[in-house]
Design a protein around this nucleic acid. Structure first.
Lengths: 218, 218
DNA sequence: GTCCACGCTGTGAAGGTGCTGAGGAACTCC
DNA sequence: GGAGTTCCTCAGCACCTTCACAGCGTGGAC
């Protein structure tokens, strides 16, 4: 599960990153509104934790723009309890849930899990690329209707590649998102797992782009 | 009997959870409107206790949406007596009964029992997955028409797995829903009980998905 | 054609994950 | 009080996954 945390207070941001990583999430942090918006557009995240007070663009604005562009990423909003901003505003803008600072970490986690279980309303529950189908809930992958058995890591890798099908994805990106960030895994691990995947889903389907990364053919 | 309590004040929520659990109900708690709505949609509860003031979506809105989707789960609404919200509003939205805070626990229980006696008109009373049948009210399980004797914990585990048949359910999720949340039970307990269940309902029916959880084959 | 950096893969070690039997604590029913 | 349940922890085992390493193959620049 990949999360995007958009928060400019660096102490809170890194506390969240550490805590959530310990729960098994892959966490990226953006420190401004524009950076967050951009990451949300391209990053293939499963949910976003979004502060309201941000440099550049407010959290409200970020959600509004995302929704206007038909991105249905689940958003959990955080706001300082200074009365200026109202919970209703956030939800009207299209956030899915709302927490007021200071908040309990346990509560954050519970809400986040609920959000992830619910998923983005308009997101197809099954990913399809060519004759490949991946069902995250059932944790099943089929290739031309034949079941493919994958290990946890292989599954996570394919999941990510399918969400970004057609794009070139660099090894660094894969290490950040499929492996735990900060795990110091050698880039060769990616090559190894790409190899495993190719044996299972078909060699030609997962192209190497020399010097840049890999691309899952659409 | 399974209840869903949707209440964001954690003290009240956990008091209700403890009290109702002591009466023999299985109680899940959701702490926001969206989370409650979602749980009500998928959880197969026998009744819902729903606060009006909730983050995310008001209790009114939750009931209205449920009814619009043809869910007829009995709903008992709770509201603070601040005059802003009116009893009539709640009932207009589709709630079945209404209590004003502060309320007596005995009254709550009495109303709740009345509600459960009435029951949801269209509710399926028995869960069926393959040749397994589980009747929550009678607390009975049969496998190919032969009765299976289960302990309380085994029953709760099978109940949850059957409600999510086909999906992969993680050990953490099982600990949260089948064991009391916050009980600090070791994940190994899940493995042990999965083992017990397998002996009783058939080994192959409950698959292990390594690194992810368990799946009850549909 | 030659060279070199990049990518691929077979091997194997290390550690992780899940299953099971044994047993202790708490509880209920005689 | 004793017998029987039930719940849960623990430790040991078997198997699987993950990943580092090293040697080989290959594409592309010249």
């Amino acid at each position: 599960m990949r999360l995007l945390v958009v928060e400019d207070e660096s102490r809170l941001a890194s506390a969240l990153q550490r805590g959530l990583a310990a729960e098994g999430f892959a966490v990226d942090v953006a420190a401004s509104g524009p950076a967050g918006l951009d990451a949300a557009r391209h990053g293939g995240y499963d949910a976003m934790i979004l502060d309201v007070m941000l440099p550049g663009l407010s959290g409200y604005e970020v959600v509004r723009r995302l929704r206007a562009e038909e991105h249905w990423l689940p958003v959990l909003m955080l706001s300082a309890k200074d009365g200026e901003y109202d919970q209703a505003d956030g939800l009207d803008c299209g956030a899915d849930d709302y927490l007021t600072k200071p908040f309990s970490y346990v509560v954050l986690l519970a809400r986040l899990r609920a959000l992830l279980r619910r998923g983005a309303p308009e997101r197809p529950t099954v990913l399809t690329v060519g004759d490949l189908r991946l069902d995250p809930a059932r944790r099943r992958v089929t290739r031309a209707d034949a079941e493919v058995a994958l290990t946890a890591r292989e599954f996570a890798l394919l999941d990510y590649l399918m969400r970004r099908a057609g794009e070139v994805v660099s090894k660094t990106e894969l290490l950040d998102h499929v492996w735990d960030a900060g795990m110091e895994t050698a880039p060769n691990a990616v090559e190894v797992y790409v190899g495993y995947l190719r044996r299972k889903i078909g060699r030609e389907r997962l192209e190497t782009v020399r010097g840049a990364g890999y691309r899952l053919a659409t």
